[in-house]
Design a protein around this nucleic acid. Sequence first.
RNA 1: GGACGCAUAGCUCAGUUGGCUAGAGCACUUCGUUUACACCGAAGGGGUCCAAGGUUCGAGUCCUUGUGCGUCCACCA
Length: 782
Amino acid sequence: MLDKYIFSEREDHWRKYWDENEIYKFNPESRKPFYSVDTPPPYVSADHLHFGHIMSYSQAEFVVRYKRMAGFEVFYPMGFDDNGLPTERFVEKKYNINKKHTSRTDFVEKCLEETKIGAETYRKLWNLIGISVDWSKTYSTINEHCQKNSQWSFLDLYKKGKIIQREEPGAWCTTCQTAIAQADLEDDEVDSFMNYINFKDEDSNNLLIATTRPELISACVALFVNPGDTRYKDLIGKQAIVPISNHKVPVLSDESVDPDFGSGLMMVCTWGDNEDAKKYRIHNLETRSILEPDGKLNDLAGEFSGMKLKDAREAIIAKLKEDNILVKQDEISHVVNVHERCGTPVELIKTKQFFINILDIKEDLLSQAEKMTWHPAHMKQRYIDWVKSLQWDWCISRQRYYGVPFPVWYCKECGEMILAEESELPVDPTAKSPNISKCSKCNSTEFEPESDVMDTWMTSSLSPQITSSLFESKDVQEKLYPASLRPQAFEIIRTWLFYTVVKSFYHFNSIPFKDIMISGHGHDEKGQKISKRLGNYVPPEQVIEKYGADAMRYWATGANLGENLRYSENEIKNGSRLVNKLFNASKFSLSFLSNEDKDLSSDLLAEDKWILNSLNKTIRLATKYMDTYQYSRARNEIDDFFWSKLCDNYLEFVKPRLYADEPDKAAKSVLYQVLLTVIKIYAPFLPFITEEIYQDFFKVDINEKSIHLSSWPKEMEIDIELDDVLSFEKAIEAVTEIRRYKSDNKLSLAKEIDSYELKTEVDKEHFDFIKRVMKVNNLSKK
RNA sequence: GGACGCAUAGCUCAGUUGGCUAGAGCACUUCGUUUACACCGAAGGGGUCCAAGGUUCGAGUCCUUGUGCGUCCACCA
C-alpha cells in the first residue's frame, strides 16, 4: 500500500481508470432490473458553476451509486440543455448584441459555439467530482435526436387536438420580443406611484380614477364601477371622456371592482394587466392596442407615439400635471410580473401563438402527482399549488431564432397549415419545402414556413423519452420508461417537472418517472443564496484542487433532500480528514491482513462479536436510509460506526492481539470483513479513496473491476445475544473509566498500571479484555 | 391573502411511530507523542429544546394559538 495518499494524483488516476474501463457504461442486455435516471440537463449557458450544482448532482449521484451496488443495471445518461431563450440571452449579453440587429444565421452560429463551450465546462466539472454517468449516452437539446423528438411531440399533440393556434392577449416580453408562458414569469417588487387622474363625464364633471399605468391612458376602452356603488349608479351606461386622447369610453359595471380601492372608479385599457384582459373577454370590449412588440407606443398615443413605455410614462405624467388633470400621486410599492430571463416587466399583447391545452386537464394533472413518490413528500404540495393556480394554457411558441423549429408551413394564398410528415423529422421549414406540391384547399403552390421556434421546455419536458429512445430496441425503451428517478431542484417544479408530467400524460397516458427527489439550494457561509451577482462563492474547481473531490462530495452529504446547504470550508475539511482517516485505518489493518483472512473465523472474542453486531446495525440502517433517499442519515450512521466504533475502540482493543508474536487469526478475519464493508458502504459518497483501498487489496478476492461494481454489503450472521452486547458495553464503560483515571493523573494511555479498582459494574468474564486493552496488571472490583 | 418549510449548546446541525439522565462536528479548557493517523487520541465545561396553553403516567417529539426567519404561489385599477 502507498505510504501516503496524495489525492490530487490518485483521484486523477481513478478518473482515467473508470473512463478507460467503462465502469459506468449501461448494458442494455443485462438481466438485472433497470434503474434509469432522468438526469437534469443543465443550461449550458450557465458559465458560473457553483456549489449548488455540485450539491444537487452529487446528491442524486449518491443514490445512483448505491443502486448500482444494490444490484440494478443503472442507466445514468447526461444531457445538456442548450436550446432556447436561456442560451440566446446568454449570447446576447456576452457579445452585447440584439436579436434585431443580427441575422438569424449569425446568431444561431454564435449560440452553437457557446453551447459547445458550455457543455465542455460542465463535463469537466462532473468528471472532476466523479459523477458516474455513462458518457456514451449524452444528448443536447438542440441536436437532431432532440429536435426530432420535440417535433414529433408537436405533431402528436396537434393531431390529438391538444395544441391549438389562436390569437389572444398574452404575456409578452418587450426586451426578448417574444411571447412567454405563465411559468416564465417572476415577481418583482417595485416602487411606483398611484396616480389619481380626472376624466370627464358627458357634462364635463370630474371623474377621478386611480392608476399605476398612466402611459396606457390612450388605450383606455372603458371605465368600470361596482354595480352596488351608489356614488356612480347614475353613471353606468353613460360615456366618459379620456384626457389627452379625448376619445369617449363607456362606463360599465362589474362585481370584481372594489369600491374602496382608489376612487372606486377603474380604468380599463388594452391591456394593462390580467384584470383588463379578463374584462376585455367578459364584456367583449373594444381593442385599442397602443403598444407595439418592441415596447414602443404607436400612433394611437398621439404626441407620445414612438416613445418607449418608460419614457412615455414620464412624459404623460408631466403633461397631465401641466394640464392640472393629475390630482395627486401616492408613493406605493407594488409587485409586477417580470420575465424571469431578463427582468423586464411583462406586457399583454395580442398575438397569434401555439398553446398546449392544460387548463382543461387540471384534475388529471393533480391525480398524476399521486402516482409518483415525492422525496421529500411535502414538495408535492408545490406542484399541486401550481396546477391549481394555472390561469393560461401553455404558450409554446417563441418569436426567437435559436430553438427547435415548428414542423409547419402555411399556404401563402389561404393560410392553410401544412404539417410535416413524421418520416421527414427533424425538419427546418425555413430550409425545406413541404412534401406536397399544392395546397389541398386552394391549390396554391406557394408556401411559407413558420419562423417561430419552440419554448425550450417543449424539448426538456421530453427528457425521459429522449433518453430512452437513444436505444433502438423497443424492449429496452419500455424498460427505461417511465424513468425510475427524476432528481431536480425545487425551483423548476412548475416548469420542468410540471411540463414533463403534461407531456407524458398526453402522449402515453403515463407518469414520466416513478420517484422524484428534490434537492435544495447551495448557500454561502452566511446562508445567502449563491449568485453570480453577489460573487459569494469560490469556484468549486479551486476547492477540489485544495481538498479533493471526495472532500467536496462529503460536504454535499450534509443536507437532507429538499434542504438548503450552507457552504462550509470546515465541512470540506472534515471530508478530507475522513479520507485521511480511512487511508490510515486501512494502512494499519492491511499491514496485518492477507487474502487468506477472508473467511470469518469461528473463534470470535466478545469484542469481535460486538463490532460485527454493530456493523450489522450500520448496514441495516444505511440500507434503509439509502432506499428512501436519506443519504445524509446513512452517512451519519456510517461516520459514527467508522470513527467511534471502529477507529476509537475496536482498532485499539485489537492491537495487543495483532502485535502478538503470532497475530490473532480471528481478529484478522474480523478486520478483513469490517474494512471491506466500510469501504463498500462509503463508496457511493467517497468513490476515490474507497476505490484506492479496494484496488490495493480486496480486488483479488471480489473479482470486480471496480468497487463501484461490487455488491452492497449484507448483514453477517453472528451468534450474539442482546445480553452479551449490553454486557460488553459495560466493559467499554469500564475502559472509559480507566481512560479518565489516566487522563486525570496525567498519564499516557499507554502507561502500564499495576492495579486498579473498578467502579463500573462489569461481568468478570471481561476482566481479561479490560486488563489487556488498558494495560492494567491487577484489576479488582469495588 | 393562501400554502409549505424551519426555530435544539457560541456556530452548523442530528434527534423517524411520545420513554432524553437531550446528542454530534466545529469552537473552547485540560491532558497525552501510544509501533495507522497530531489531518490523531483521551477527558471535560457548555442547553429553562422560540413563547403560551393543552393532551398524557411521561412532551424536544403530538394538538392549538402566537412570534420570528425562509420559500413558493396569488392579488397587484
